[in-house]
């Protein structure tokens, strides 16, 4: 699995900077992928601002706070992504639950799935090849 640090770097550097700031024409990609990459970059930014303080910059957690890799994947495997989004929206961030907007919640969950090398979709699916790939 790709290291989380790399994922964060990629999410920000390639999606945000690569798409928005680099000069020249945007790479030829379907509009849906472009939107998804923008959401991932937004999710990465939100994660750093709202989640990383407790769950760690690399989603690795600590003795008190659960990692958002490994057991996190096992725990949500097979569940509707909407259920994961509902949980994040309802319970997180712990110090201010309910403060993430629905759009921000979706972006963070998309980022978490991407960081765990899981495909986007309606269900948390493990062992399925990802369809989305932001340009590197």
């Amino acid at each position: 699995m790709m290291r989380t640090k790399d994922m964060i770097a990629r999410g920000i550097a390639t999606c945000a900077l690569g798409l928005a700031l680099l000069p020249g024409p945007a790479p030829a990609r379907p509009p849906a992928a472009s939107t998804a990459c923008t959401e991932l970059a937004h999710g990465a930014d939100l994660y750093r601002a709202a989640c990383a303080m407790c769950h760690g910059a690399h989603l690795d957690g600590n003795f008190q706070t659960p990692a958002l890799t490994g057991r996190f994947v096992a725990n949500w495997a097979g569940a509707p992504v909407s259920a994961l989004e509902a949980y994040v929206h309802r319970a997180m961030p712990l110090m201010a639950p309910g403060t993430l907007s629905p759009d921000d919640t979706r972006a963070i969950v998309a980022f978490l799935l991407e960081a765990n090398n899981l495909p986007q979709g309606k269900t948390v699916r493990v062992g399925v090849r990802k369809a989305l790939a932001c340009p590197s």
Partner: peptide, 9 residues
């Protein structure tokens, strides 16, 4: 002290 505070950090 701490009432209403869920800052677990």
């Amino acid at each position: 002290t701490g009432v209403g505070n869920s800052f677990e950090h």
